[in-house]
Design a protein around this nucleic acid. Sequence first.
DNA 1: AATGAATGAGGATTCATTCAT
DNA 2: GATGAATGAATCCTCATTCAT
Lengths: 190, 190, 190, 190
Amino acid sequence: MPRTGMMAIRKDALVNATISEIGRAGSLDVTVGQIAKVAGVSSALAHHYFGSKDDLLLAAMRAILREFGAAARAELAKATTPMQRLDAIARASFGGKNFSPDVVSAWLTFYVMAQRDAEAARLLRVYQHRLVSNLTHGLRPLTSEPQRIAETAAALIDGLYIRHALAEVGPPDGTAAAARVMDYLNVALA
Amino acid sequence: MPRTGMMAIRKDALVNATISEIGRAGSLDVTVGQIAKVAGVSSALAHHYFGSKDDLLLAAMRAILREFGAAARAELAKATTPMQRLDAIARASFGGKNFSPDVVSAWLTFYVMAQRDAEAARLLRVYQHRLVSNLTHGLRPLTSEPQRIAETAAALIDGLYIRHALAEVGPPDGTAAAARVMDYLNVALA
Amino acid sequence: MPRTGMMAIRKDALVNATISEIGRAGSLDVTVGQIAKVAGVSSALAHHYFGSKDDLLLAAMRAILREFGAAARAELAKATTPMQRLDAIARASFGGKNFSPDVVSAWLTFYVMAQRDAEAARLLRVYQHRLVSNLTHGLRPLTSEPQRIAETAAALIDGLYIRHALAEVGPPDGTAAAARVMDYLNVALA
Amino acid sequence: MPRTGMMAIRKDALVNATISEIGRAGSLDVTVGQIAKVAGVSSALAHHYFGSKDDLLLAAMRAILREFGAAARAELAKATTPMQRLDAIARASFGGKNFSPDVVSAWLTFYVMAQRDAEAARLLRVYQHRLVSNLTHGLRPLTSEPQRIAETAAALIDGLYIRHALAEVGPPDGTAAAARVMDYLNVALA
DNA sequence: AATGAATGAGGATTCATTCAT
DNA sequence: GATGAATGAATCCTCATTCAT
């Protein structure tokens, strides 16, 4: 076990703990102490590595967006037809870690954080833009107004996301959500 | 002017101040002191009337939902055809006070609040249910699967709402948002 | 006892407690909690009334300078000849509360605070300027270079002050210090 | 270069960094981390070599006093007449490194440190005593009360020092300060 | 000889809430 | 009906210090 190189390990642990605790609490009202405890370190260390609570939250946000980006790329890599590409995007949005209660909760709070933090707002806009851009790209071979349909589909995805954050019980049903997006695309392209 | 009316006046002022301050701050991180100052009263009075900060927030939430309900009913009253009814709902969602930056911000924070507060969650579910219900009712004469389309439309409405919360500049464009919902309904019904 | 009007009382108590605690600790490393405890209130109240620790420290500084100004004016009012005026200034500098160990310690720390806080620096410069100005005024009838002698005397006063801050034991001897300043003035005017 | 020499090198670097950082910050509110960074080592090493922060500060204080002593001796060695000896002391006090903004700031903070740390107080008293002693020695051939004049001159030197710590702009003017001390001595001896 | 890792203790500050008047 | 006064509890953040390597 190398004594050096702990930084990366601790940072990862703290970011994961942040996501998990935000998810558990359902809000940004999570103390650095709670996060640190989950990560198995002192709160001082969290500050040592991230500088401030906001920086830690932003790091968590970036991790989620990165995760989503990776999932999307993985799904897209397997797609060959335009329709498969669209399906890939829909499934990436609602698949795996991206649709776990933790992440959905965290996602919601990031929207709130974006109201006061410029960097958070920037990150969310990057996400939004990328989603629309991916959809537009997939739609181009299929319709004369890809942009318009892509924007609607993107809003629909976000809406389904937020609606699931309020679901009474059980884990979110990602398959159903993805199917609903495809339904829309099918009728829009018809 | 009866002295007893003061209570109603103060409560209204506090609720309005709450919405306005949440909108200004873009989050629930609003102190009772700030709200009270905007309402022109002491923070002690806010507690006197509402018991706790959460109760005040819930009151603000109910006021917004009531406002939305009233707007929806007003629009629906003027509608005669099924399609007009649907348009009425769409316009109510994105019209008037309901789509001002203040309210959009407040709305967002209520979603977060709902993660930890059962009553807030209940209120949001009532809203969601009523929206789907209204849409379903309007769709019934027009399609064989009104529920499914209504749910998608409702998610789309929420998604457009949340997307506008991040809009870079200027006031939200309610007309465009409503039009986009109608676009979806048109293709879904085609 | 009026329930209102506590503010002035508390502020006074806090300012006095600040001077006393700085004197006791001999440095600015005094916690707001300590000060508040001495003043018989909570630390939260100190912030409520002064906004921040620095503001409280500055208020204490202003109180000391005001005290010194008042003492100087009182002594000057009794003087009739130029030499008496000079003696009055010297005695004011080293008399009463102004030369208690508390205040000498506080004074010293204000010099340090002035290294980082513009307002503190400004206040000290006002004091220095006023001291030189008073001395110059008193010296004008007695010499052709009042400014020069005044500046030297002022530095001597500050030097005696700081030297006494290190005195091994017992309370500072104000009379001796004042006499030494007068000695200088006597030879300088000879 | 012997390996054992590292200790001396590091210690010197840390002491110099301490003085420089105290001067930069204008107060003792300097972290060991900052000092270590300037010295190009880890903060752990600072503790390794000095044991504690206070010990490091005291080492810096001793270095300044040593520097001053060396400067005084060098100047005194060149003096042949009593008056030249006095001038030598005055110039040593305000010359070279001893009157740089860094050192003036550090000096000030040492006075504060002396309020709580016995060793710091002892060191300052040694300095004060030596200064008076040097002056007395120089004055003995010239007056019947060398002690009294020496003490006043020493206080004047300290006062000029502290006054310069608040100078609005530019580097301290050592020549002017030394001249002012000589002015006093000239009139006192007249 | 030197450091990255880690933390305990402490401090300023904020804020919902209470209460006497 | 209304508020100034007051605080306890909590939170972020800092920093000297320790230790294994």
